[in-house]
């Protein structure tokens, strides 16, 4: 009987897009791991010194401000972990890496404002996730669930650096929550390092970018390579997807639109990206 059961299990029909989904996930995961490694590599020549900085940053607030006055040769900007925390209870496992930017160019006091914004965003996101975790746990217990069988929800915050040059920086802070992959949230930060201004898509892609982006989007979802992967969107759907898209730079410094999950197709399409011409 065991063999017959196994035969039925093995006869589960495999979707033909499975290899494509796997390859796409490997590419996305590897890209994310690479950008994480890149941000660490920026740190590596000074790892020991920075380790001490991080330790002090975590404990002595006044040192944090002073740190930005320390001259660092050969690098205009770095993204570094200033706080790393891990804690857990019966409702959640939390794993947070808080990044900060360190700019050595002109009047870079704006970096502190960005760092405060990053920290506030992370605090807000984690608080939201923790409240959801608590709510879910209480709902589980009040409906007769056994606390012993409860699996705490994982909450993680990490970051990726996409592009860093002498004048431009693009990175993201990412929160993941295993309660639902839809709760993965990306906050992108794209800055002109010389002015401290946030980069606008029209500056990067030129005037008329929206019409060009829409044409590229139509090509992506309806072109010969789409092969039914995406939904067929009407004009309103295209506009809505463009409105909700986020901006980042790729490794060559080109602007990239990142579309929200489920805005162009089913969950297996992930968060499609479009490098703007």
């Amino acid at each position: 009987m065991k063999d017959e059961l196994k035969d039925i299990y093995n006869a589960t029909e495999l979707p033909e897009e499975l290899p494509g989904v796997v390859e796409a996930a490997l590419r996305r995961g590897e890209r994310r791991a690479r950008s994480r490694r890149r941000s660490l590599r920026i740190l590596s020549p000074m790892a020991a010194a920075l380790a001490a900085f991080v330790l002090v940053l975590n404990t002595v607030p006044t040192f944090a401000a002073a740190m930005y006055e320390v001259p660092v040769l050969g690098e205009v900007c770095r993204v570094l972990t200033v706080r790393s925390s891990h804690y857990a209870d019966n409702t959640k496992n939390v794993d947070i890496e808080v990044p900060a930017i360190d700019v050595e160019l002109g009047e870079a006091g704006w970096a502190e404002s960005v760092n405060r914004l990053i920290e506030a965003t992370i605090d807000y996101e984690v608080a939201q996730s923790e409240a959801r975790a608590e709510e879910y746990y209480q709902a589980y217990i009040s409906t007769g669930g056994d606390p012993e069988d409860y699996r705490p929800i994982d909450i993680g915050v990490d970051y990726e650096v996409y592009y860093a040059s002498d004048s431009v920086l693009s990175f993201a802070v990412i929160k993941t929550e295993t309660l639902a992959s839809a709760y993965e949230t990306f906050h992108y930060y794209n800055y002109d390092l010389t002015t401290g201004e946030e980069l606008q898509i029209s500056e990067l892609a030129g005037e008329g970018w929206r019409e060009r982006a829409k044409a590229q989007l139509v090509e992506l979802i309806s072109g010969p390579d789409a092969d039914g992967t995406y939904w067929q969107l009407d004009e309103a759907g295209l506009e809505e997807a463009l409105d909700a898209a986020q901006l980042r730079l790729d490794g060559a410094g080109r602007p990239v639109l990142v579309f929200q999950k489920y805005s162009l197709g089913p969950g297996s399409t992930g968060r499609p990206e479009l490098v703007l011409d």
Binding site: Y9, N10, T12, L14, P15, E17, L18, V21, V22, A24, A25, L26, R28, G29, E30, R32, A33, R36, D158, T176, S181, P266, G267, S268, G270
Partner: peptide
């Protein structure tokens, strides 16, 4: 194929199982 079958044995939905395989790979790489 094994990973898809395992996911499918829980959720019995083709789309959800593909999502799970995809998310698991990305999470594992991290």
């Amino acid at each position: 194929a094994s990973f898809y079958r395992i996911a499918f044995s829980y959720v019995r939905s083709r789309e959800d199982a593909l999502d799970i395989v995809q998310d698991s790979i990305e999470k594992a790489l991290r």
